[in-house]
Amino acid sequence: MPIWEFLQKYSSVLMHGTWVTCLQFVLAVLVAVSVALVMGIGKLSANPLIRGTCVVYIELFRGTSLLVQLYWIFFVLPLFGITLPNFTAGFISVGLNYGAYGAELVRGAIQAVPRGQWEAATALSMSPFARMRRIVLPQAIAIMLPPWGNLLIELLKGTALVSLISVTDLMFQAKQINASTYLSAQAFGTALIIYYLFARVLITPSMRWAEHAVARRLGRS
């Protein structure tokens, strides 16, 4: 089947899949960023209990496979009385997993902010919370934006795994088409291109824009 005919026939299904992937991506990013901030800052806490919790979390989620985590959250948690719909289980798993990687970026960026900045804020009697929120985090964000750009592209690719718990994302639809038509090249080729364009046209330019915006705030552009 020629490609244009293929596209004509399956475009609406693929569009729907792309939309679901898009939702999974956005929601997973929200989870990942929140988790990364909490765990990354927590890992620097003076309180050993908080620090320990964060270290264990980061180790656990980085050290085991996303696929296994996904199955745990979707198939095993119900045994403990926590049942999540597959859509929710999907983005939460992806978010928790990439959030663990993000936490290390947050921690590294915070530690890269010069000590003098903390000290100047302390000399102004700012509270630890205000020092973090007003002085250190804004500078840490500028430091961590470029690696976050990479992480978000990884995260997008990671969302393809949610098809394995039957979330009807782009990957799921491509597999369905393949199973019913055996048009593997067309189905997975189109999916490949859509994933690539998603990253190239949406994620990378948005991150560039964010980096510029932050540089402007630092009076650097």
């Binding site: 010069p114 003098g116 900045q117 000290e119 100047a120 804020a121 002085i135 804004p138 500078q139 500028a142 705030r217 630092l218 009076g219």
Partner: peptide, 9 residues
């Protein structure tokens, strides 16, 4: 401070 430590943002 010797190194000013103004807030750059």
């Amino acid at each position: 401070f010797q190194s000013f430590n103004l807030f750059p943002h």
